[in-house]
Design a protein around this nucleic acid. Structure first.
Length: 351
DNA sequence: TATACGTGGGT
DNA sequence: TACCCAAGTAT
């Protein structure tokens, strides 16, 4: 059949291109080779969820040096794991990473399940990651659909249905072009193509190995696919954070597992709900940093007013005194790392 | 199906 | 500047 032949040609052309142009990435084995370590594939895939290759690089190196196996990771202390993840974002991933490593080590004898279904049952492993690990680490034929694949497929077939309604149509098309062999290479080739050639804006169609078979290339504006609704405006919020210092130590708390920055060390702070100026946690020589720390999250932006004081005792509630000269090792998420830096600068400016 | 959930880089 | 986007998952 003509259509079936076209689908096979797409995979063949893409794999031939990948054999020459595959990006060399720390977690990747050369095209066509076996032996990818499931632990490393899984770790990289979780880190790469909604996160750029450039941001993941140093974290992947740090994690694999410190925890070379899934058993080693399973034995990590929660606080160490969360601190090592600090700055990478989406902290539910770190909590699920640890839960997943412990499940693999203790319930699966240290070996990752080698099927999509088995992988999908693990914490933090969704449809995409299960398919990616099954294909890349175990050579299974699995249909791997991430945002890159969605874009490439929407263009190849000029799918005009807007996202997210187009997902079923896109998946069906991805299913048709996924080859029976080299599914792992095919998945990575599609993602490389999306990241380097078939980019969201200004795609490099001139060097694309699939342009002959691309329905969008035949239109006036290939970048018009996939069709998406405009994003909603982000609300602005404000809040307060408190730096309490005593004998060269600052008081840090751990945020609850649920919600923003869940499970992370943090400065005590208000609930960011625009409430009127709340009272500080305790008495002290309070001063306020001149400019609030501005931080943009996925679905709102925050202006955090940062206050600092020397105190005589610990405030009420759970927490720990952390050495100020080692604040960089506390594993603060970026918002609070910036708040700490703002306090340091404010004090320098006053002296 | 819609929303919550980080961060940094690109335009 | 303001907005878009990135190898998604859980609820």
């Amino acid at each position: 059949m003509r259509v079936e032949g076209r689908d096979r040609k797409i995979a063949g052309d893409l794999l031939a291109h990948y054999d020459v142009h595959a990006r060399r990435l720390p977690w990747r084995v050369p095209p066509g080779s076996n032996g990818a370590d499931p632990y490393r594939v899984w770790l990289s895939e979780v880190m790469l969820q909604q996160t750029t290759v450039a941001a993941v690089g140093p974290y992947y190196t740090k994690f694999t040096e410190r925890w070379p196996t899934v058993e080693a990771l399973a034995d990590a202390a929660d606080a160490d794991l969360m601190a090592a993840w600090a700055g990478l974002g989406y902290y539910a991933r770190a909590r699920n990473l640890l839960a997943c490593a412990r499940a693999v080590a203790r319930e699966h004898g240290g070996r990752f399940p080698d099927t999509e279904e088995g992988l999908r049952a693990l914490p933090g492993v969704g449809a995409y990651t299960a398919a990616a690990v099954a294909a890349i680490a175990f050579g299974r034929r699995a249909v791997v659909v991430d945002a890159n694949v969605e874009r490439v497929v929407a263009r190849l077939f000029a799918i005009a249905t807007p996202l997210p309604a187009a997902r079923a149509e896109i998946r069906a098309a991805a299913e048709r072009i996924t080859p029976d062999t080299r599914a792992g290479d095919f998945a990575q080739a599609m993602m490389d193509l999306g990241a380097t050639v078939c980019t969201p804006r200004k795609p490099a169609c001139g060097v694309c190995p699939l342009r002959e078979d691309c329905a969008a290339f035949a239109t006036a504006d290939p970048a018009a696919f996939p069709v998406k609704a405009p994003n909603k405006a982000k609300p602005h919020r404000s809040g307060h954070g408190w730096w309490m210092e005593r004998d060269g130590h600052v008081w840090l708390v751990r945020r609850p597992d649920r919600g923003m920055l869940g499970g992370m060390r943090a400065l005590p702070s208000s609930d960011w709900s625009d409430a009127p100026d709340p009272a500080p946690p305790m008495a002290g020589d309070w001063r306020t940093v001149g400019e609030p720390v501005l931080h943009i999250f996925t679905h709102f932006s925050l202006a955090l007013r940062v206050h600092h004081a020397h105190v005589e005792a610990a405030p009420a509630g759970e927490g720990e005194w952390w050495p100020v000269d080692r604040i960089g090792e506390a594993g603060l998420p970026t918002l609070f790392a910036r708040a700490a830096e703002a306090v340091r600068k404010d004090r320098d400016a006053r002296n």
